[in-house]
Design a protein around this nucleic acid. Structure first.
Lengths: 166, 166
DNA sequence: TGGATACTTAGAAAATTTCTCAGCTGCAAG
DNA sequence: CTTGCAGCTGAGAAATTTTCTAAGTATCCA
């Protein structure tokens, strides 16, 4: 039962409504993936979703996971995150927020936008000075560092490429 | 001759010195890759570097490109960027800066840190409220939107996943 | 100059993502 | 309720990106 918290339930309910509204068909596979995504703040990879859902839907294929995530993303219900090398992570939290990413284990944590969240328009001049004609849609902030567990256990040298313990 | 600008020459010279200082051996492959990287502000992928350098070094293998980029990164001379799905891009500009990334074609442009560049310490409380124990090393900003060329030629719907025209 | 060490090669392999297409299914219309 | 069909799924192959292995080669220090 992945959805204990009311926030996740609300997000899942909204996803259902918006999947229909987008003209996408409601299939068991989509429901399962949307529900799992909505209830998981760790931003799972396609692989992780597949492994978690497989026991309950043994016939589901890997391509379906990708197809579904693409469909959800196209409908604006989730986004694909490229925060570190390796597999993409998927995020159903569509409220503006940033991410803290562990350099060592690749862990991702949502970080609400700070108080000093400047409006996008404030960045435009700065961006356009460097990239003339660039039309700014969003500003994303990534906090890099070590998560609590990795910081507590730093061997001789720590790796820069994430997701590769050892 | 990839290095017309003095900035790139300076960066290349510093790379040479620091490659030695890191205990890394100076091989022709490393020199070529470091030079190409230092002179290219577009943050090439491993594939692009390989294709550019291959004519001058027909025996160079693909693995060497990756090995070298890893070695340079470990020595703090470049970083691997995961800005959009697909191949990683490599950046030899080690001064603090941000990136503008085109949603459509994947183009990357350096954007100097704006005047309102707050020190890292200002973000720490905000990050630690969401991720207790996270030790913050760096804050990275990504400007998402459309580059000039893509903005001028937006068909019906534009894609969110970069690097995939069509 | 010579030797230890680290690097390069080439190819295979692993990991991630996309594609193809045949068959099935949700769902809207009748 | 039944039907039709657009759109979805499943399975596997393929494409892309990155890593690994083994053996030969080059760099650099003494």
């Amino acid at each position: 039962m992945p959805n204990a918290c009311p926030e996740a339930e609300a997000r899942y309910a909204e996803m259902l409504a918006r999947v229909r509204a987008s003209g996408l068909k409601l299939t068991p596979q989509r429901l399962a993936i949307a529900r799992e995504l909505a209830g998981d703040p760790t931003h799972p990879t396609a692989q992780e979703l597949f492994e978690r859902l497989r026991p309950g839907m043994p016939t589901m294929s890997f391509a379906t996971v990708y197809n579904t995530l693409d469909a959800l993303a196209a409908a604006g219900l989730c986004v694909s995150l490229s925060l570190s090398p390796g597999a993409a992570r998927f995020d159903a939290n569509m409220t503006p927020h940033n991410h803290a990413v562990c350099d060592r284990c690749g862990l991702v944590r949502d970080v609400p936008s700070c108080a000093n969240g400047e409006p996008i328009t404030e960045f435009a001049p700065c961006v356009n000075a460097a990239a003339p004609g660039f039309s700014l849609r969003a500003v994303e902030r990534i906090y890099r560092g070590l998560c609590e567990a990795c910081a507590a256990d730093v061997p001789t040298a720590f790796r820069t490429r994430a997701g590769k313990p050892r």
